[in-house]
Simulated assay, not measured.
Amino acid sequence: MIENTQLNVSGERFSVVYFITGNEAQAKHRAEHICIEQTIEFPAELIGDDDIRRHIFGRLESFSQVNETQWQAVISYALEITGTNLPQTMNVIFGNISLQPGVQVNQLLLPDSFTQHFKGPRFGMQGLRELCNEPESPLFCSALKPMGLSSAQLAAQAYEFAKGGIHFIKDDHGISDQVFAPFRERVPLCVAAVERANKETGLSCKYVPTINTPANQIFADARWAKEQGVGGLMLLPGISGFDTMRCIADDDEIALPILGHPSLLGGMVSSAQSGYSHAVLFGQFMRLAGADISIYPNFGGRFSFSREACLNIVQGTSCDMGTIKPIFPSPGGGMNLTSVPEMIEAYGKDIMFLIGGALHKGDQGVVENCQELRQLVNQQVRLLAK
């Protein structure tokens, strides 16, 4: 028996909303198990009536039915067990229990006493609007592709997007440091191309390279890209790690907008019974890790996200998280100009359109297609406001 442990803790707690699959008795038992598994991972009966039991154990705050097969358990945790850092926070929220089926992290309820330990997005939605001089309208993003083009060809494409008024021109997520477009050759060429277009148009479009390099060079590559004059960085937190993205976002010497890409994250939301809700993974975690923009597959595209899931992401990008700023949702993946009215109807004006391959189609050139996209979106926004 372990007893008489006294701890200097604040009593502050944060809560996680779990959806648990099963009948009532099974789900209640699983919820009680989570309280122990996600904290002490030790036989609870061997803990005496002391501060470990009073403070360190997870605490089942409420338990209610969601539907015929799922139950909602709200479990609170002591702030101190997170070490107030992101890796341990993610471990507490869903570490060992992620190995068991039938448990989904549905929502994070984070008090100011918790979120004040994180810088979150440097710019957020409002900061990006100011950066792009777009106080009301949606923003626009496109991707340089396909993989296999040379650095010069990608730079020429970046120039066209910038001439057409695309705010953020990013590498496609698969373009990293390959022999046909090496990172340190491609980046300065694309920066120069976008700067040339900006001088011609008077706009302030930004080139955003993908920073998807080995762990031992990712920070050096991010800082080098900043020195070349890039306008933002795209990170793949499912591959490089959420805390790697947070470190780059927090770095005052870099101080650039961060685009969070969903690569490798899909399996964490593909089940309605396990993993994470879309709001937590693509909204709340992205914000805690410093992303200013969360990229995800739009409904109706070539991926399987539903309209409900996409609107759930919007909730996660905009819900109250204390000092953590709201960020731009950026739906994409097989979108085209015909998708615009439905997207405006669903998302409103607080959206960053991500349209890639469709801007190369048709009888017009890329510049004209970009301009048509902007005109169509602004027209739809005006109609929505009436």
Rank of each mutant, 00 (worst) to 15 (best):
S330C: 15
G357K: 00
V367W: 00
F328H: 13
I324Q: 11
G332A: 15
I344M: 14
N336S: 14
G356I: 00
A346F: 08
E368L: 05
A358R: 01
V366R: 04
F328V: 12
F328P: 14
Q364V: 03
I355A: 03
L354A: 13
T323M: 11
T338I: 08
G356C: 04
I351Q: 02
I351G: 10
T323R: 13
I324P: 05
E372T: 12
E345A: 10
G332N: 14
P329W: 02
N369H: 07
G332H: 11
P329S: 08
L376S: 08
H360L: 12
L337R: 09
Q371R: 08
S330I: 02
Q371T: 08
I355W: 03
A346C: 15
I344N: 12
T338H: 13
T323S: 15
V366M: 13
L376Y: 01
K361H: 10
K349S: 15
E368D: 05
G365F: 01
S339F: 08
E342A: 15
M335Y: 00
I327E: 09
P326V: 07
G365C: 01
L337I: 13
V377C: 07
L359P: 04
E372D: 07
D350S: 12
I344H: 13
G333I: 01
P341F: 14
K325G: 07
V367G: 01
E345Q: 11
I355T: 06
G348N: 11
I324C: 09
P326D: 06
E372M: 06
E372A: 10
K349Y: 09
L337N: 11
L359T: 06
N378V: 00
G333K: 11
E342S: 15
V367Y: 00
L373S: 06
L354G: 03
H360C: 03
E345F: 04
S330K: 01
N378K: 04
P331W: 10
L373V: 04
S330D: 04
G356Q: 01
G365L: 02
Q375Y: 02
I324A: 11
